[in-house]
Amino acid sequence: MQFLLDGLIAGASVGLGAIGVTLTYSVLRFSNFAHGDFMAWGAYAALVVVGFIGGSTPLGPFSFGLPLILALMVAMGLTSGMALALDWALFARLRARGQAIIVVMASFGASMALRSLLEFIFTSRPTYFSRSIQMAMPVGFGVKITADQVAMLVLTLCLVVGVHLMMTRTQRGREMRAYAQNPALARVVGIDVDRVVRSTWVIGASLACASGVMVGVLVQIRPLMGLSLLLPIFAAAILGGIGSVPGAVLAGVIIGLSEAAAVQFIGAEWRAAVAFVILMGVLLIRPTGLFGVTER
Protein backbone atom coordinates (compact mmCIF):
# COMPACT_ATOMS: atom_id res chain seq x y z
CA MET A 1 0.00 0.00 0.00
CA GLN A 2 3.01 2.26 0.45
CA PHE A 3 2.95 3.05 -3.26
CA LEU A 4 -0.36 4.88 -2.86
CA LEU A 5 1.22 7.35 -0.47
CA ASP A 6 4.29 7.73 -2.68
CA GLY A 7 2.00 8.40 -5.63
CA LEU A 8 -0.02 10.95 -3.69
CA ILE A 9 3.11 12.87 -2.77
CA ALA A 10 4.56 12.77 -6.27
CA GLY A 11 1.13 13.76 -7.58
CA ALA A 12 1.03 16.78 -5.28
CA SER A 13 4.13 18.29 -6.87
CA VAL A 14 2.84 17.45 -10.35
CA GLY A 15 -0.47 19.09 -9.47
CA LEU A 16 1.16 22.29 -8.21
CA GLY A 17 3.11 22.51 -11.45
CA ALA A 18 0.03 21.78 -13.53
CA ILE A 19 -1.88 24.70 -12.00
CA GLY A 20 0.70 27.06 -13.46
CA VAL A 21 0.58 25.40 -16.87
CA THR A 22 -3.21 25.36 -16.98
CA LEU A 23 -3.41 29.05 -16.01
CA THR A 24 -0.76 30.13 -18.53
CA TYR A 25 -2.54 28.11 -21.17
CA SER A 26 -5.99 29.48 -20.47
CA VAL A 27 -5.03 33.11 -19.88
CA LEU A 28 -2.00 33.61 -22.13
CA ARG A 29 -3.00 30.91 -24.61
CA PHE A 30 0.24 29.04 -24.98
CA SER A 31 1.79 25.94 -23.47
CA ASN A 32 4.85 27.07 -21.62
CA PHE A 33 7.68 24.58 -22.08
CA ALA A 34 9.80 26.59 -19.66
CA HIS A 35 7.43 25.93 -16.77
CA GLY A 36 9.40 22.89 -15.58
CA ASP A 37 12.50 25.03 -15.47
CA PHE A 38 10.69 27.53 -13.24
CA MET A 39 10.47 24.66 -10.74
CA ALA A 40 14.16 23.92 -10.95
CA TRP A 41 15.05 27.61 -10.71
CA GLY A 42 12.73 27.97 -7.73
CA ALA A 43 14.39 25.08 -5.94
CA TYR A 44 17.89 26.43 -6.59
CA ALA A 45 16.81 29.93 -5.57
CA ALA A 46 15.60 28.55 -2.25
CA LEU A 47 18.86 26.62 -1.88
CA VAL A 48 20.90 29.77 -2.40
CA VAL A 49 18.76 31.79 0.02
CA VAL A 50 19.07 29.06 2.66
CA GLY A 51 22.81 29.23 2.16
CA PHE A 52 22.73 32.99 2.74
CA ILE A 53 20.68 32.72 5.91
CA GLY A 54 23.04 30.09 7.29
CA GLY A 55 22.55 26.92 9.29
CA SER A 56 20.01 26.41 11.99
CA THR A 57 18.50 23.59 13.98
CA PRO A 58 15.67 21.73 12.32
CA LEU A 59 12.16 22.33 13.54
CA GLY A 60 10.80 19.41 15.56
CA PRO A 61 10.64 16.21 13.55
CA PHE A 62 11.32 17.95 10.21
CA SER A 63 14.56 17.96 8.26
CA PHE A 64 14.31 21.70 7.71
CA GLY A 65 14.13 24.76 9.93
CA LEU A 66 12.82 28.28 9.73
CA PRO A 67 15.44 29.32 7.12
CA LEU A 68 13.89 27.03 4.52
CA ILE A 69 10.40 28.39 5.18
CA LEU A 70 11.71 31.90 4.80
CA ALA A 71 13.74 30.90 1.76
CA LEU A 72 10.66 29.37 0.13
CA MET A 73 8.87 32.71 0.35
CA VAL A 74 11.83 34.66 -0.99
CA ALA A 75 12.33 32.09 -3.75
CA MET A 76 8.67 32.34 -4.77
CA GLY A 77 9.21 36.05 -5.20
CA LEU A 78 12.42 35.52 -7.15
CA THR A 79 10.86 32.91 -9.44
CA SER A 80 7.92 35.24 -10.07
CA GLY A 81 10.35 38.00 -10.90
CA MET A 82 12.14 35.74 -13.35
CA ALA A 83 8.87 34.76 -15.03
CA LEU A 84 7.83 38.41 -15.31
CA ALA A 85 11.21 39.37 -16.74
CA LEU A 86 11.03 36.56 -19.27
CA ASP A 87 7.54 37.67 -20.24
CA TRP A 88 8.64 41.25 -20.65
CA ALA A 89 11.74 40.40 -22.68
CA LEU A 90 10.33 37.60 -24.82
CA PHE A 91 6.80 36.29 -24.54
CA ALA A 92 4.93 39.60 -24.42
CA ARG A 93 6.67 40.85 -27.57
CA LEU A 94 5.90 37.67 -29.50
CA ARG A 95 2.35 37.54 -28.13
CA ALA A 96 1.74 41.00 -29.51
CA ARG A 97 2.44 39.62 -32.99
CA GLY A 98 -0.42 37.22 -32.54
CA GLN A 99 1.11 33.88 -33.52
CA ALA A 100 0.55 31.63 -30.54
CA ILE A 101 2.79 28.82 -31.72
CA ILE A 102 5.81 31.15 -32.02
CA VAL A 103 5.42 31.86 -28.31
CA VAL A 104 5.47 28.11 -27.66
CA MET A 105 8.69 27.85 -29.63
CA ALA A 106 10.22 30.73 -27.72
CA SER A 107 9.34 29.01 -24.45
CA PHE A 108 11.08 25.92 -25.78
CA GLY A 109 14.25 27.91 -26.52
CA ALA A 110 14.05 29.70 -23.18
CA SER A 111 13.59 26.36 -21.44
CA MET A 112 16.79 24.99 -22.97
CA ALA A 113 18.72 28.12 -22.03
CA LEU A 114 17.38 28.26 -18.46
CA ARG A 115 18.12 24.61 -17.81
CA SER A 116 21.65 24.77 -19.21
CA LEU A 117 22.31 27.94 -17.26
CA LEU A 118 21.53 26.01 -14.07
CA GLU A 119 23.93 23.28 -15.18
CA PHE A 120 26.52 25.95 -15.81
CA ILE A 121 26.14 27.55 -12.38
CA PHE A 122 25.50 24.50 -10.21
CA THR A 123 26.79 21.61 -12.43
CA SER A 124 24.51 18.67 -13.14
CA ARG A 125 25.35 16.93 -9.86
CA PRO A 126 22.29 16.53 -7.62
CA THR A 127 22.23 18.43 -4.36
CA TYR A 128 20.06 18.45 -1.24
CA PHE A 129 18.50 20.81 1.27
CA SER A 130 19.41 18.39 4.01
CA ARG A 131 21.30 15.12 4.08
CA SER A 132 19.80 13.89 7.32
CA ILE A 133 17.86 10.66 7.13
CA GLN A 134 14.31 10.93 8.40
CA MET A 135 12.49 8.36 10.45
CA ALA A 136 9.27 7.20 8.84
CA MET A 137 6.29 6.78 11.13
CA PRO A 138 3.91 3.90 10.52
CA VAL A 139 0.33 5.06 10.01
CA GLY A 140 -1.38 1.68 9.54
CA PHE A 141 -1.93 -0.69 6.59
CA GLY A 142 1.84 -1.03 6.40
CA VAL A 143 2.18 2.57 5.21
CA LYS A 144 4.95 4.74 6.57
CA ILE A 145 5.21 8.49 6.28
CA THR A 146 7.94 10.96 7.23
CA ALA A 147 7.33 14.29 8.92
CA ASP A 148 8.63 16.08 5.81
CA GLN A 149 6.10 14.28 3.65
CA VAL A 150 3.28 15.34 5.96
CA ALA A 151 4.52 18.94 5.89
CA MET A 152 4.67 18.98 2.09
CA LEU A 153 1.18 17.50 1.72
CA VAL A 154 -0.16 20.15 4.08
CA LEU A 155 1.69 22.86 2.14
CA THR A 156 0.20 21.61 -1.13
CA LEU A 157 -3.28 21.55 0.34
CA CYS A 158 -2.94 25.11 1.64
CA LEU A 159 -1.62 26.42 -1.67
CA VAL A 160 -4.30 24.67 -3.72
CA VAL A 161 -7.14 25.84 -1.51
CA GLY A 162 -5.65 29.32 -1.48
CA VAL A 163 -5.40 29.54 -5.25
CA HIS A 164 -8.86 28.08 -5.71
CA LEU A 165 -10.39 30.63 -3.35
CA MET A 166 -8.46 33.39 -5.05
CA MET A 167 -9.75 32.33 -8.46
CA THR A 168 -13.37 31.98 -7.37
CA ARG A 169 -13.83 34.62 -4.68
CA THR A 170 -11.62 37.60 -5.41
CA GLN A 171 -11.86 40.38 -7.94
CA ARG A 172 -8.46 39.43 -9.38
CA GLY A 173 -9.56 35.82 -9.82
CA ARG A 174 -12.77 36.86 -11.57
CA GLU A 175 -10.78 39.08 -13.88
CA MET A 176 -8.43 36.21 -14.74
CA ARG A 177 -11.31 33.86 -15.50
CA ALA A 178 -13.08 36.52 -17.53
CA TYR A 179 -9.96 37.23 -19.56
CA ALA A 180 -9.44 33.52 -20.20
CA GLN A 181 -13.00 33.23 -21.54
CA ASN A 182 -12.99 36.27 -23.79
CA PRO A 183 -9.98 38.60 -23.91
CA ALA A 184 -11.70 41.21 -26.12
CA LEU A 185 -14.75 41.48 -23.90
CA ALA A 186 -12.51 41.61 -20.83
CA ARG A 187 -10.98 44.79 -22.21
CA VAL A 188 -14.41 46.24 -22.94
CA VAL A 189 -15.60 45.74 -19.36
CA GLY A 190 -12.52 47.54 -18.06
CA ILE A 191 -10.24 44.69 -17.02
CA ASP A 192 -6.58 45.69 -17.01
CA VAL A 193 -5.00 43.02 -19.20
CA ASP A 194 -1.45 43.70 -18.01
CA ARG A 195 -2.51 43.12 -14.45
CA VAL A 196 -4.19 39.83 -15.37
CA VAL A 197 -1.04 38.70 -17.20
CA ARG A 198 1.13 39.63 -14.24
CA SER A 199 -1.11 37.77 -11.80
CA THR A 200 -0.98 34.69 -13.99
CA TRP A 201 2.81 34.63 -14.06
CA VAL A 202 3.14 35.31 -10.34
CA ILE A 203 0.74 32.52 -9.38
CA GLY A 204 2.20 30.04 -11.86
CA ALA A 205 5.81 30.78 -10.97
CA SER A 206 5.19 30.79 -7.22
CA LEU A 207 3.49 27.41 -7.35
CA ALA A 208 6.23 26.06 -9.60
CA CYS A 209 8.78 27.25 -7.06
CA ALA A 210 6.87 25.60 -4.21
CA SER A 211 6.65 22.40 -6.19
CA GLY A 212 10.39 22.50 -6.95
CA VAL A 213 11.26 23.07 -3.28
CA MET A 214 8.96 20.19 -2.38
CA VAL A 215 10.77 17.83 -4.73
CA GLY A 216 14.02 19.22 -3.39
CA VAL A 217 13.09 18.48 0.22
CA LEU A 218 11.68 15.03 -0.46
CA VAL A 219 13.98 13.81 -3.24
CA GLN A 220 16.81 15.97 -4.54
CA ILE A 221 17.59 19.13 -6.52
CA ARG A 222 19.12 18.90 -9.97
CA PRO A 223 18.96 21.09 -13.07
CA LEU A 224 16.96 18.48 -15.01
CA MET A 225 14.27 18.07 -12.33
CA GLY A 226 11.91 20.38 -14.18
CA LEU A 227 12.41 18.72 -17.54
CA SER A 228 11.58 15.30 -16.14
CA LEU A 229 8.38 16.65 -14.59
CA LEU A 230 7.29 18.56 -17.69
CA LEU A 231 5.45 15.71 -19.41
CA PRO A 232 3.50 14.69 -16.26
CA ILE A 233 2.62 18.36 -15.71
CA PHE A 234 1.34 18.86 -19.25
CA ALA A 235 -0.56 15.58 -19.07
CA ALA A 236 -2.13 16.67 -15.77
CA ALA A 237 -3.14 20.09 -17.13
CA ILE A 238 -4.86 18.48 -20.12
CA LEU A 239 -6.39 15.61 -18.16
CA GLY A 240 -7.78 18.07 -15.61
CA GLY A 241 -9.24 20.27 -18.31
CA ILE A 242 -7.43 23.41 -19.41
CA GLY A 243 -8.21 26.32 -17.10
CA SER A 244 -9.46 24.25 -14.18
CA VAL A 245 -7.41 24.60 -10.99
CA PRO A 246 -9.07 21.74 -9.08
CA GLY A 247 -8.89 19.65 -12.25
CA ALA A 248 -5.14 20.20 -12.55
CA VAL A 249 -4.55 19.10 -8.98
CA LEU A 250 -6.81 16.08 -9.15
CA ALA A 251 -5.22 15.05 -12.44
CA GLY A 252 -1.78 15.56 -10.92
CA VAL A 253 -2.67 13.14 -8.15
CA ILE A 254 -4.12 10.66 -10.65
CA ILE A 255 -0.89 10.76 -12.62
CA GLY A 256 1.22 10.49 -9.47
CA LEU A 257 -0.76 7.44 -8.35
CA SER A 258 -0.59 5.84 -11.81
CA GLU A 259 3.16 6.35 -11.91
CA ALA A 260 3.53 4.83 -8.48
CA ALA A 261 1.37 1.89 -9.56
CA ALA A 262 3.53 1.44 -12.66
CA VAL A 263 6.65 1.43 -10.51
CA GLN A 264 5.05 -1.12 -8.21
CA PHE A 265 3.63 -3.50 -10.81
CA ILE A 266 5.58 -2.99 -14.05
CA GLY A 267 8.97 -1.62 -13.17
CA ALA A 268 10.52 1.67 -12.12
CA GLU A 269 12.18 2.17 -15.49
CA TRP A 270 8.83 2.64 -17.24
CA ARG A 271 7.56 5.30 -14.85
CA ALA A 272 8.14 8.17 -17.29
CA ALA A 273 5.94 6.51 -19.94
CA VAL A 274 2.82 6.62 -17.74
CA ALA A 275 2.16 10.32 -18.29
CA PHE A 276 2.44 9.81 -22.04
CA VAL A 277 -0.03 6.93 -22.05
CA ILE A 278 -2.50 9.00 -20.03
CA LEU A 279 -1.95 12.01 -22.30
CA MET A 280 -2.66 9.97 -25.44
CA GLY A 281 -5.71 8.43 -23.81
CA VAL A 282 -7.15 11.85 -22.95
CA LEU A 283 -6.43 13.30 -26.38
CA LEU A 284 -8.04 10.36 -28.16
CA ILE A 285 -11.05 9.89 -25.89
CA ARG A 286 -11.86 13.21 -24.19
CA PRO A 287 -9.63 16.10 -25.25
CA THR A 288 -11.50 18.53 -23.00
CA GLY A 289 -10.28 16.62 -19.96
CA LEU A 290 -12.17 15.91 -16.76
CA PHE A 291 -13.35 19.45 -16.01
CA GLY A 292 -12.79 21.18 -19.31
CA VAL A 293 -15.72 23.00 -20.81
CA THR A 294 -14.47 24.13 -24.18
CA GLU A 295 -11.70 22.91 -26.36
CA ARG A 296 -9.41 25.69 -27.33
Binding site: Q171, A178, Q181, A184, V293
Partner: peptide, 23 residues
Protein backbone atom coordinates in the same frame (compact mmCIF):
# COMPACT_ATOMS: atom_id res chain seq x y z
CA UNK B 1 -19.64 49.83 -24.70
CA UNK B 2 -21.84 46.78 -25.27
CA UNK B 3 -20.61 44.62 -28.17
CA UNK B 4 -23.05 43.00 -30.55
CA UNK B 5 -22.18 39.35 -29.90
CA UNK B 6 -20.32 37.46 -27.21
CA UNK B 7 -21.05 40.27 -24.80
CA UNK B 8 -21.25 38.14 -21.65
CA UNK B 9 -18.93 35.62 -19.98
CA UNK B 10 -20.85 32.36 -20.48
CA UNK B 11 -18.90 30.32 -17.91
CA UNK B 12 -19.51 32.74 -15.05
CA UNK B 13 -22.73 33.23 -13.12
CA UNK B 14 -24.99 36.20 -13.78
CA UNK B 15 -23.86 37.76 -10.52
CA UNK B 16 -20.19 37.25 -11.39
CA UNK B 17 -20.79 38.81 -14.80
CA UNK B 18 -21.83 41.97 -13.00
CA UNK B 19 -19.14 41.77 -10.36
CA UNK B 20 -16.37 41.34 -12.90
CA UNK B 21 -16.06 45.06 -13.53
CA UNK B 22 -16.28 45.82 -9.82
CA UNK B 23 -12.59 46.67 -9.85
Amino acid sequence: FVPQTENIFPLMTVQENLAVCGG
